[in-house]
């Protein structure tokens, strides 16, 4: 108490501190990208989540080699085997990149170092897209290696039944899946809520949709105007059946349902994430 020597009430001019005004430059976006990328890998859980993409892709390739009869092995068999688990893990990557800030409350530090939440969230979104596309490149290469290996083992020529266009549609479907994850993440800002919501969307909604289509003729006729999932699945389908193109109407249905299921809730979620109080 009495050992503080500053006289009460007097505010003497303090010693000059370091730096002349205006010498601090703004934080470049590339730096935010780099820091956010590091944050995806620098915890055990984050590292394992990323590693699981590669592990699962490798396991799926091996599993395909073992389980699928040699005569049926084509590039498509490998891509679908790798693509299915990846289509589940990638949205989780997107979800956790956002929700861990709120769940672990690191948002308190993140957003006091970079007050513009929009920059941080764009960096995360950009990284998710990059990771998604990289993972799919890995899937494409692994699938190709598996396909060549299987063909060599059987002593026949490899069957390449998925072309470039098919790969692009495959990538697009996966990036949309990550977009769904990202949307649920900014909307809920809670890891458990977003993960549960994702699995409801990913596993429950299609079952319900199919069941309703089974009893409701009108719904069955119009399902592509309502159910976003069915349109995204057509991207996989188009890629894998060698029928590489979607019709103009199919693209329109994808865009329309995407607007309702993805773009609108994403906009609402982004608004919430940018403005909501961080505690």
């Amino acid at each position: 108490m009495s050992d503080v020597t500053i006289a009460s009430g007097s505010v003497d001019t303090p010693p000059h501190r370091g730096r002349p005004a205006g010498t601090i430059s703004p934080i470049p976006f590339a730096r935010i990208l780099w820091i956010e990328l590091r944050k995806m890998f620098d915890t055990r859980s984050g590292l394992w989540l990323m590693a699981s993409i590669l592990i699962v892709a490798a396991l799926a390739t091996v599993g395909t080699l073992i389980l699928v009869p040699e005569s049926d092995l084509t590039y498509e068999s490998f891509l679908s085997a790798i693509g299915f688990p990846m289509n589940t893990i990638l949205p989780l990557v997107a979800i956790l990149s956002v929700t861990s800030e709120w769940g672990q409350r690191t948002a308190l530090t993140t957003f006091t170092l970079v007050p513009s939440r929009a920059r941080v969230i764009s960096a995360k979104a950009g990284l998710c897209a990059i990771i998604g596309v990289s993972a799919l490149a890995v899937a494409a290469v692994l699938g190709a290696v598996g396909n060549i290996g299987a063909a060599a083992f059987a002593g026949v020529g490899a069957t390449w039944d998925v072309g470039w266009q098919g790969l692009v549609l495959f990538a697009m479907a996966n990036v949309i899946g990550m977009g769904i994850g990202f949307m649920l993440a900014v909307l809920t800002r809670s890891s458990p809520a977003a993960v549960v919501a994702f699995f409801v969307y990913y596993l429950v909604v299609p079952i319900v949709s199919t069941a309703v289509a089974g009893v409701q003729e009108w719904y069955a006729d119009h399902v592509h105007w309502i159910d976003f999932n069915t349109n995204v699945n057509r991207l996989f389908g188009a890629g894998f059946t060698g029928d590489d193109a979607l019709s103009a109407q199919q693209w329109f249905q994808l865009g329309l349902t995407g607007l309702v299921w993805l773009v609108v809730p994403l906009t609402v979620g982004l608004r919430l994430a940018l403005r909501a109080e961080i505690k």
Binding site: S25, I27, T43, Q104, R105, T106, T112
Partner: peptide, 21 residues
């Protein structure tokens, strides 16, 4: 503030860190 950490040091909750880092 262009780079707030250079001008304001903030500690709001010491527990608000990812335990895995």
């Amino acid at each position: 503030l262009p780079n707030p950490g250079r001008e304001v040091g903030v500690l709001l909750d010491a527990s608000a860190q990812h335990g895995g880092r």
